[in-house]
């Protein structure tokens, strides 16, 4: 975890139920490989993305966040992806103000037909984050992960070391 070559980033991806989640499904059904570093959360629309979700993810140990949605003009809810776009720019500015590299948050448009694009974007984003290095926000906040909500309950004694 100390140098960027062995650093294995963790990325949270927010997907839209109608396009990018289905792009991820398509990447799966067509067996298109991409790095294991991303973990996805399904939203109904990129417009549902509350910027606090991103802060929460970064604060809880994610090194980057990928926000995905329908291409401009193709939103299932007509225009809500534009609202995601507005929030995304605001979010990047806020992150910068907080001293976090804004590049840790990326916005990607992927239609339900773009499984390949989804996989490629994940691959390149993992490399971008790898180059930036670990964020370790929960540490630099002086917070132990053990006081951040549900995970704080006593861990099972026989906790196994599992790679991220």
């Amino acid at each position: 975890m100390n140098n960027n070559e062995t650093f294995d980033p963790v990325i949270i991806g927010f997907t839209c139920n109608w396009c990018s989640y289905r792009a991820a499904d398509l990447a799966g059904t067509s067996r298109t490989k991409y790095p294991h570093n991303i973990r996805l959360i399904r939203l109904m629309c990129s417009g549902r993305l509350d910027p606090t979700f991103v802060f929460k993810a970064l604060a809880n140990g994610a090194d980057g966040v990928m926000i995905t949605g329908c291409h401009p003009g193709e939103c299932h809810y007509l225009e809500q992806n534009y609202k995601a776009l507005r929030r995304f720019h605001l979010l990047r500015r806020t992150l910068k103000g907080l001293g976090v590299e804004p590049e840790r948050v990326k916005l990607v448009w992927a239609s339900a037909a773009e499984g390949k694009k989804f996989a490629t974007e994940v691959g390149s984003f993992v490399e971008e984050i790898r180059a930036l290095g670990p964020l370790n926000w929960y540490r630099s906040n002086g917070r132990s992960p053990d006081d951040s909500g549900p995970t704080s309950h006593e861990p099972a004694p026989d906790l196994k070391e599992v790679p991220a």
Binding site: M1, V10, I12, R39, I41, F53, K56, A57, N60, G61, A62, Y138, R139, S144, P145, D146, S148, G149, P150, T151, P155, L159, E161, V162, P163, A164
Partner: peptide
């Protein structure tokens, strides 16, 4: 909650 759950392992991996 889902974010916390998804990130449980890498936070838990190296206790602070």
């Amino acid at each position: 909650a889902q974010i916390e759950g998804l990130l449980l392992l890498n936070v838990g991996e190296e206790p602070v």
